[in-house]
Design a binder for these strands. Structure first.
Length: 677
DNA sequence: AAATCTCCTG
DNA sequence: CAGGAGATTT
């Protein structure tokens, strides 16, 4: 079984990267970093495409990684496709001499173990000290990752820049919405941002403090493994020394071309950490590692969570009177930092779960920045237009409080979603990436998991989707004693957000997923909020055309099914409406009312109360007078028809329908630009 | 033929 | 409120 599975995986992987896969003799356990190849091997123009291909490659590997975790023997470390999968097995193999043949090329492999480790330790401590004090760290948050090298970070930034560039596009299209302040950030960012410099700095400070915390944790970590280094047995130690020197050499030379000193140091630490991890012997320290990891993860999650929460609060409160562009000037920074935090977190995790977890996390974390390149232009356009065009049109209760975009004020009240929800999702995104299974999220309290799919209070659609996903995985509570590797990787393959387009879109660009969930609310299906809105619209129009529906539900992705569902809703509304009319008309006749003019519909009428109860249950919407008039007319029509015993005709209502359908009035513009509830 | 509507049922 | 059936409209 394992063998065939591996074969299949091999095959799939090959399909995933097609023409590119250049011969790669590195063993899986040493392909700790898929960008370990020297930078020189890329021409300037090909870096992106290399990244793209590798992203695909590793994404596939990620998807399949859970198979490897459960497979015990089939991992063939000599095969390049599997090499990108950092399975637990290959991890273990890393400690055995036989697995290292092809990497023992360094002539320095015989350097004394103790000297080497001491020097290494000194370097690491020094580097960490520098990192902790570096004023630049806040601007290079993504370089905090302990498990990446310098080029990795640089390319990530480059991809990020691409991302940012593309994300501006749709904002350009939004000129009419943005108002006078709606200027391109590129040309007027300084103007727009000046007013918000203070906020930006505050945010920076917060993030910086978070990063310091991370450094401290990393230091603790290293201390633990410094002690354990001394206990290494000789064979393993030799292996490590050889491996490290080999790696150190290649890294050294690579760093020469790196302009960012901080990144270099940081990446140094990364390599050191990983070497130590490997040297320590995974199995020997697995238990402690996991305990530590859990503790660290929790601590980091909480800290990052708090920080991001505060960031969002600030941005949203400041963003309410900002133009989108003004906000943009602050968001990217936040985005960088958030990404950095996330990666840092992963890095610290990786220290303990050197490879298996890295395999699960790495491809996405890189894709996080790269994936703008991994999309077709068409897809990109679509995704981005969604990102920017929709915000003002989305249900306020869902996103407004956290949204850094300005919101058109509406005459209606909206509920603030609980900050808890946002932070939890964000935390999860930081922790596991956008595609992970929220059901495995330990930090989401039971109340969240119990959230019913139709809960209106869900802050993001992703949560609504999550609730669906979660429901199918609630049976897999995360046992704290279980190794994070196993659980995390079990969770990852489950990730199937039940929102086709959004999913595919975010698979290509998790970064957009992040923004989507923070900023906008794209609907694949109709939500209870939409139903509520439709009911309110019924006060204005009983027979809306599908065009009207499309106009007034801009946050809904219309297809045949959705359209007919909306039409069906209004059909049902009418049904109830007419049933009430007929009922009250007959009641009037039964009451002996002989003159139509004695029949009126006011807000005190029982008929109105019945209708209001149906279409405006919360009674938080002021029903237009016109609706009362229409209702009265309808009632009169029914009364007259029944009075004239026209109801004996099977199609006697048709005439009434014909009249009523002409009484539609325009739906207020507010329904277009925002939704309530 | 497809879209839309009403009516009926669950 | 959804689904289906049948009628009507475009």
């Amino acid at each position: 079984m394992n063998l065939s599975l591996s074969d299949q995986n091999m095959h799939n992987s090959s399909e995933g990267c097609l023409e590119d896969d250049k011969p790669d003799v590195m063993l899986p356990c040493f392909r700790r970093n898929m960008y370990d190849e020297p930078l020189a091997s890329y021409s300037n123009g090909s870096i992106i495409s290399q990244l793209l291909r590798k992203t695909i490659h590793n994404k596939r590997a990620l998807e399949e990684s859970h198979f490897y975790l459960s497979s015990s023997t089939a991992t063939d470390s000599g095969q390049e496709d599997q090499g990108s999968v950092f399975s637990k097995d290959s991890m273990v193999e890393a400690a055995s001499p036989s697995a290292h043949v092809s990497t023992r090329t360094s002539p320095e492999g015989d350097s004394p173990m103790t000297d080497h480790l001491q020097a290494k330790r000194a370097r690491v401590e020094n580097i960490i000290r520098v990192m902790a004090g570096s004023p630049n760290s806040k601007q290079h948050g993504d370089s905090e990752r302990c498990d990446t090298d310098a080029r990795d970070s640089r390319e990530a930034r480059e991809a990020y820049r691409e991302n940012k560039r593309k994300q501006r596009l749709p904002q350009h299209q939004e000129h009419s919405v943005g108002g006078p302040a709606n200027r391109r950030p590129g040309s007027s960012s300084s103007d727009n941002c000046n007013t918000k410099d203070e906020e930006c700095h505050k945010l920076k400070e917060q993030l910086h403090s978070m990063q310091r915390l991370l450094h401290q944790l990393q230091e603790k970590f290293l201390q633990v493994y410094n002690q354990e280094d001394a206990e290494l047995n000789d064979s393993d130690a030799t292996e490590v020394a050889v491996e490290h020197d080999t790696l150190g050499e290649s890294m050294e030379s690579r760093y020469i071309s790196t302009e960012d000193d901080f990144e270099r140091k940081n990446s140094r630490v990364t390599a050191e950490c990983k070497d130590r991890m490997k040297a320590a012997g995974y199995q020997a320290h697995q238990k402690e590692s996991q305990n530590l990891q859990e503790a660290l993860k929790q601590e980091l999650s909480r800290a990052v969570n708090d920080c991001v929460d505060r960031v969002f609060k600030k941005v949203s409160s400041a963003g309410l009177d900002l133009s989108p562009q003004q906000c943009v000037c602050s968001t990217p920074e936040m985005q960088i930092s958030v990404g950095a935090d996330r990666k840092s977190q992963q890095a610290s995790s990786t220290q303990e779960q050197p490879q298996a977890e890295e395999a699960a996390v790495r491809p996405r974390s890189l894709e996080y920045y790269e994936s703008s390149e991994a999309q077709s232009p068409q897809d990109q356009t679509e995704a981005l237009s969604l990102v920017v065009r929709k915000p003002a049109l989305t249900p306020l209760s869902s996103v407004t409080p956290k949204r850094p975009y300005p919101v058109h004020q509406t005459p209606f009240q909206f509920n603030y979603s609980t900050p808890l929800h946002d932070s939890q999702i964000l935390e999860h995104l930081l922790k596991y990436g956008p595609h992970s299974n929220f059901g495995g999220l330990p930090c989401i309290p039971p109340s969240m998991d119990r959230t019913s799919p139709d809960s209106v209070d869900l802050p993001w659609d992703a949560i609504a989707m999550r609730s669906k996903v979660t429901s199918s995985h609630l049976g897999h509570p995360r046992p704290s004693a279980l190794g994070a590797v196993t659980v995390d990787n079990l969770c990852l393959p489950h990730v199937k957000i039940e929102c086709g387009e959004l999913q595919s879109m975010t698979e290509r660009n998790p970064y957009i997923f992040f923004r989507l969930n923070v900023n906008v609310n794209i609907q694949e299906g109709l939500t209870p909020s939409h139903l509520k809105k439709a009911k309110l619209m019924f006060f204005y129009t009983r027979y809306p055309s599908s065009n009207v529906l499309k106009t007034f539900f801009p946050d809904v992705k219309f297809n045949r099914c959705i359209t007919s569902q909306l039409i069906k809703w209004f059909s049902n509304f009418r049904e109830f409406y007419y049933i009430q009319m007929e009922k009250f008309a007959r009641q009037a006749i039964a009451d002996g009312i002989s003159d139509v003019k004695d029949i009126t519909v006011s807000r005190d009428s029982e008929l109105f109360r019945a209708l209001n109860m149906h279409y405006n249950k919360a009674n938080d919407f002021h029903v237009p007078d016109r609706f009362l008039e229409v209702a009265e007319i309808t009632l009169h029509e029914f009364y007259n028809a029944i009075f004239a015993t026209k109801d004996s005709d099977p199609s006697w209502k048709k005439a009434i329908y014909k009249v009523i359908c002409k009484l539609d009035s325009d739906v207020p513009e507010e329904f277009k630009t925002s939704s309530y509830l």
